[in-house]
Simulated assay, not measured.
Amino acid sequence: MPKFSLIVLSKTDQQSTYDMNVECFDTFIKSAIKAKVDYEILLIESNKNSHYQYNVQHLKIITPKDAFSFHKFLNIGVSHANAEYYILSNNDVVFDINWLVETNNVLQHNPKLLSVSPLDPKANSLPKEALENNNYIVGYQIQKHLTGWCIVAHKKVFEAIKKLDERFGFYYADNDYAMQLQKYNIKHALVTNAIVHHLHGQSSVGDNKNKSFELPAKTPNYIIKENWTWVLNNKKMIEGLILFHDKWGSRKTIKIKLFLANTVSKLGLGYLNRFIITHS
């Protein structure tokens, strides 16, 4: 059976965060035992003064010296991991007892599927019929196929992309990962029976609070025209979106690149995607 490395990011500076970490670890361990797989847990702790102690088997705590950055800290976790699969996870998740059974079953029966995400029934916007009639659904759309708060990636993913782009400190990190997968023709899917509950907004790794600010000069016009208030009210999210477009191109350019990549992939020439989906 394969081994899974659960890589969890946290800033444990209060009891409620510690309790959330413990619930995350506990529910994961129960699911690993049910799935009869080997596992390890790597807690990437951004609170350098954390004094909390854990009574958790196979747990290693790593406290980087650097300031927190989502992709940087995940890369640190991956560099210390010793497993075939990496589970890149927020700490504000609760794993269903059968989620890893379902995930592992899909992965073992579909060896070309190297990256998957679980389903949070309360948050996913895919059609109910599609979720009920498929064990997994291939795709790269954020919050539909790909959930940035929990991704299971085979080590071959990192052999291809080398590492996550550390310029993405938090926002649009999942969008960048989705583009990387498509660039290297790596299949990703939502596993519809792998249930993980995301306790939205309770994670300690991001900060959504902003005072009023002036929109950056490079703010994409489309988010203003289409009134993307959830982005327009968050300076860091806007900065993440600007970085995303600086790297991959305008929305129109990205659409063209993905159309061309999808076309050649259907012809069995997906290896050409890396020359089509270019970035800065």
Rank of each mutant, 00 (worst) to 15 (best):
L9D: 00
S10Y: 03
D13K: 04
Q14I: 07
S16L: 11
T17I: 15
T17H: 06
D19T: 12
D19H: 12
M20T: 14
F25H: 04
D26R: 14
F28S: 05
I29A: 02
S31K: 04
S31E: 01
A32T: 13
K34V: 07
D38P: 01
D38C: 05
Y39E: 05
E40P: 01
I44D: 08
E45H: 00
S46T: 13
N47G: 03
S50V: 09
S50H: 05
S50G: 08
Q53L: 09
Y54T: 04
N55L: 11
D66R: 10
D66Q: 14
A67V: 14
G77H: 02
V78K: 08
S79F: 04
H80P: 03
H80Y: 15
N82E: 15
E84M: 02
Y86K: 12
S89Q: 06
V93L: 15
I97W: 05
N104K: 07
N104M: 10
L107S: 01
H109Q: 11
N110E: 10
L113P: 07
V116A: 09
S117W: 02
D120W: 02
A123G: 13
A123K: 12
N124Y: 08
L126R: 08
N133L: 13
N134Q: 03
G139I: 11
Y140E: 08
I142Y: 03
Q143T: 12
K144N: 12
K144P: 00
H145C: 06
W149C: 13
H154L: 08
K156R: 11
E159S: 14
A160I: 03
I161P: 09
K163F: 05
L164P: 04
E166C: 01
F168W: 06
F170E: 06
Y177W: 10
A178I: 06
M179Y: 08
Q180S: 11
L181K: 01
Q182D: 02
Y184L: 03
N185Q: 11
I186D: 02
I186Y: 07
K187M: 13
A189I: 13
T192A: 07
T192R: 00
A194W: 04
L199Y: 11
H200K: 14
Q202A: 14
S203E: 11
S204E: 05
V205L: 04
D207K: 09
S212I: 13
E214T: 15
T219G: 01
I224E: 09
I224P: 07
K225Q: 15
E226G: 02
W228T: 04
T229P: 00
W230R: 15
L241W: 01
I242V: 13
F244Q: 00
H245T: 08
D246Y: 08
W248Q: 05
R251S: 12
I254E: 04
L260M: 12
L260D: 00
A261E: 07
T263H: 04
G270M: 08
G270D: 09
G270V: 09
Y271C: 11
L272K: 01
